[in-house]
């Protein structure tokens, strides 16, 4: 066996060790950055989620001021945890549009009665099509959209009290 060949295994080991050691010291960033950040909202139009309640489409988002698009559902437990924070955002004058994912009107009404209603408009996404189009992987999830209808920030999971400053900063940046 020639001399260099004998050292191939140990060289491979060193490469392997370097790779995994690097990965151990730089823990994986588990947040998935939306590829749509910085891009316009994909076009969609949602049917009404509740009778006598305004719905919206992608073209209604470019209102000149930043706003939040929030995916929620009455069957989603973290959404209940998120509700007080959304109410607080509303109290601070933030405009929020809701998208009810795979839900029924009577359940949505019940959910809003119990947990408060922070939404300006609510659309129904019965088959998760809009959710998919925006690259959202679960409920709840929120998008900060600027005044020209461009997605500025994607928040995966519920907005908890400790995330409030982060969201307000993102809204400020989107102005």
């Amino acid at each position: 066996m020639s001399r260099p060949v004998r050292f191939v295994p140990i060289a491979l080991l060193v490469v392997f060790l370097a790779f995994v050691a690097w990965r151990l010291t730089v823990p994986a960033d588990t947040t998935i950055r939306s590829k749509l950040e910085g891009k316009p909202v994909p076009s969609f139009a949602l049917p009404e989620a509740l009778p006598a309640r305004a719905t919206f489409g992608s073209t209604d988002l470019a209102t000149g001021k930043p706003r939040i698009v929030n995916f929620f559902a009455s069957w989603c437990v973290p959404c209940i945890a998120e509700a007080p924070v959304l109410r607080e955002l509303k109290a601070k004058g933030v405009a929020i549009d809701g998208i009810a994912v795979r839900d029924r009107p009577e359940d949505i009404a019940e959910f809003l009665k119990e947990n408060g209603d922070p939404y300006q408009r609510i659309g129904a996404d019965a088959q998760s099509n809009v959710q998919m189009a925006l690259g959202s992987s679960g409920v709840p999830e929120s998008f900060v959209v600027d005044g020209r209808g461009i997605i500025r920030y994607q928040h995966v999971g519920p907005i908890m009290p400790q995330d409030l400053d982060l969201i307000l900063t993102e809204l400020e940046k989107a102005k």
């Binding site: 066996m1 001399r3 004998r6 050292f7 295994p9 140990i10 080991l13 060790l17 995994v20 050691a21 151990l24 823990p27």
Partner: peptide, 27 residues
């Protein structure tokens, strides 16, 4: 991560030592 580092260190020592021994004795 601490546990991972520990096992990785053991792996480096054992497999590294065995492969160095192999390189030295293969001839």
């Amino acid at each position: 991560p601490q546990r991972g580092t520990f096992i990785l260190a053991l792996l480096a020592i054992y497999v590294g030592a065995a492969l160095i021994l192999f390189a030295a004795r293969a001839a």
